[in-house]
Amino acid sequence: MDVFMKGLSKAKEGVVAAAEKTKQGVAEAAGKTKEGVLYVGSKTKEGVVHGVATVAEKTKEQVTNVGGAVVTGVTAVAQKTVEGAGSIAAATGFVKKDQLGKNEEGAPQEGILEDMPVDPDNEAYEMPSEEGYQDYEPEA
């Protein structure tokens, strides 16, 4: 019985440690998101679009440190934060509304985080759909 109880105690310690790591990862992701939003706020009209992409990228980098179902929630929060940063930029006159959601080359930025393969159960990952990809044929 002692062996059984000791095993359960060790398992509990492992769960607590994993929860603490997840909590730490979420806190880091939130900190990076805040950094990115402050970065966007300090940019001029020309830099705002690039700044919004930076927020998304920093958040995406930190999301990889967070495991399990938390990833889905962090990704949703990050996307809403990026959308909010863009709205703030438009409201303050840093950028025109028609410039939001495009990178410096004018290509749409939507789907940055949505296409990231995420499995809350950590069982399997699927690649994003290939609808947006084109076949590449090298020139002879």
Results as ranks from 00 to 15, higher is better:
Met1Glu: 00
Met1Ile: 00
Asp2Ile: 12
Asp2Arg: 05
Val3Leu: 07
Val3Met: 12
Phe4Cys: 04
Phe4Met: 07
Met5Glu: 01
Lys6Arg: 06
Gly7Ile: 04
Ser9Gln: 07
Lys10Phe: 00
Lys10Val: 07
Lys12Ser: 07
Lys12Glu: 00
Lys12Gly: 06
Glu13Arg: 02
Val15Glu: 00
Val16Gly: 06
Val16Arg: 09
Val16Asn: 08
Val16Asp: 01
Ala17Val: 03
Ala17Leu: 05
Lys21Leu: 14
Thr22Lys: 00
Thr22His: 02
Gly25Ile: 11
Gly25Asp: 07
Gly25Asn: 12
Val26Lys: 00
Val26Gly: 01
Val26Ala: 03
Ala27Cys: 03
Ala27Gly: 05
Ala27Tyr: 14
Ala27Lys: 15
Glu28Asn: 08
Glu28Phe: 06
Glu28Ile: 06
Ala30Gly: 03
Ala30Met: 14
Gly31Asp: 00
Lys32His: 04
Lys32Thr: 04
Thr33Met: 15
Thr33His: 05
Glu35Gly: 06
Glu35Ile: 15
Gly36Trp: 12
Val37Ser: 01
Val40Ala: 08
Val40Ser: 00
Val40Thr: 03
Gly41Ala: 00
Gly41Ser: 12
Ser42Gln: 07
Ser42Val: 07
Ser42Glu: 11
Thr44Ser: 06
Glu46Gly: 04
Val48Tyr: 03
Val48Phe: 11
Val48Trp: 11
His50Ile: 10
Gly51His: 01
Gly51Lys: 15
Ala53Trp: 04
Thr54His: 08
Val55Ala: 10
Val55Thr: 03
Val55Tyr: 02
Lys58Thr: 12
Lys60His: 10
Glu61Asp: 07
Gln62Tyr: 02
Val63Leu: 15
Thr64Arg: 08
Asn65Arg: 08
Val66Pro: 02
Val66Glu: 02
Val66Met: 14
Gly68Cys: 14
Ala69Pro: 04
Ala69Cys: 03
Val70Cys: 15
Thr72Asp: 13
Gly73Glu: 03
Gly73Tyr: 01
Val74Met: 12
Thr75Leu: 14
Thr75Arg: 07
Thr75Cys: 10
Ala76Cys: 14
Val77Trp: 15
Val77His: 05
Ala78Glu: 03
Ala78His: 07
Gln79Thr: 11
Gln79Val: 04
Gln79Ala: 06
Lys80Trp: 14
Thr81Gly: 05
Val82Asn: 04
Gly84Gln: 13
Gly86Asn: 09
Ser87Ala: 10
Ile88Asn: 00
Ile88Glu: 05
Ile88Gln: 06
Ala89Lys: 09
Ala89Ile: 14
Ala90Leu: 15
Ala91Tyr: 11
Ala91Lys: 10
Phe94His: 07
Lys97Glu: 11
Asp98Arg: 15
Gln99Leu: 02
Gly101Tyr: 07
Gly101Ser: 07
Gly101Pro: 00
Asn103Thr: 09
Glu104Lys: 00
Glu104Ser: 04
Glu104Gly: 09
Glu105Lys: 08
Glu105Gln: 14
Gly106Val: 12
Gly106Lys: 13
Ala107Thr: 13
Pro108Gly: 11
Pro108Trp: 03
Gln109Leu: 11
Gln109Met: 08
Glu110Lys: 02
Glu110Thr: 10
Glu110Cys: 09
Ile112Trp: 10
Leu113Arg: 12
Glu114Lys: 07
Asp115Ser: 11
Pro117Arg: 04
Pro117His: 04
Val118Leu: 11
Val118Pro: 05
Asp119Arg: 14
Asp119Met: 03
Asp119Trp: 14
Pro120Lys: 07
Asp121Asn: 13
Asn122Cys: 11
Asn122Thr: 02
Asn122Gly: 08
Glu123Ala: 03
Glu123Gly: 13
Ala124Phe: 06
Glu126Thr: 07
Met127Asp: 00
Ser129Tyr: 08
Glu130Val: 02
Glu130Ile: 15
Gly132Trp: 14
Tyr133His: 02
Asp135Cys: 09
Tyr136Ser: 11
Tyr136Pro: 10
Glu139Trp: 10
Glu139Pro: 13
Glu139Asp: 07
Glu139Phe: 14
Ala140Ser: 13
